[in-house]
């Protein structure tokens, strides 16, 4: 199961990068970035998965004493949680800049912005 999820994550990264590089519309490029970041998160969670173990939450089903042999690695999950929240901040920033650029030029086509091109 972890293999399937990891392969899906890798495929999503490739699809997202392809979309971000080939589209000229800035909103479509941002969608590509979002898909690629979802893929990265999926790969990281899949790396932490171990067959036959349960979530890193201790309760009646998972007593404290044998937690070491029953739970999966909690560290990738904590990292991915951080990454998702930061991802929203980055996406919101990109969208705000896209809106400002649209206000200045009246277009979303990135090839029309040539000021820094040489």
């Amino acid at each position: 199961m972890a293999d399937i999820a990891m392969a899906t994550g890798f495929i999503l990264i490739l699809i997202g990068i392809f979309g971000a590089l080939t589209n000229r519309n800035m909103l479509r490029m941002i969608v590509g970035f979002v898909i690629a970041s979802t893929g990265v998160n999926l790969v990281m969670v899949a790396v932490g998965y171990m067959r036959g173990r349960t979530a890193p939450i201790l309760d009646d089903a998972v007593p404290v004493a044998d937690a070491v042999t029953r739970i999966i690695d909690p560290l990738p999950q904590a990292l991915v949680l951080t990454a998702i929240v930061i991802g929203l901040g980055v996406t919101a920033l990109m969208l705000a800049f896209t809106y400002r650029l649209f206000v200045t030029k009246g277009t979303l086509d990135i090839s029309k912005f040539r000021e820094l091109k040489w």
Binding site: A5, T38, N41, L42, A46, R53, T54, L81, G87
Partner: peptide, 18 residues
Amino acid sequence: QYLLLAAPDVAMTEAAIG
């Protein structure tokens, strides 16, 4: 998919935020 991979915290975050 995260829920199937035994990561309920990440699943909640992705559903609410992502």
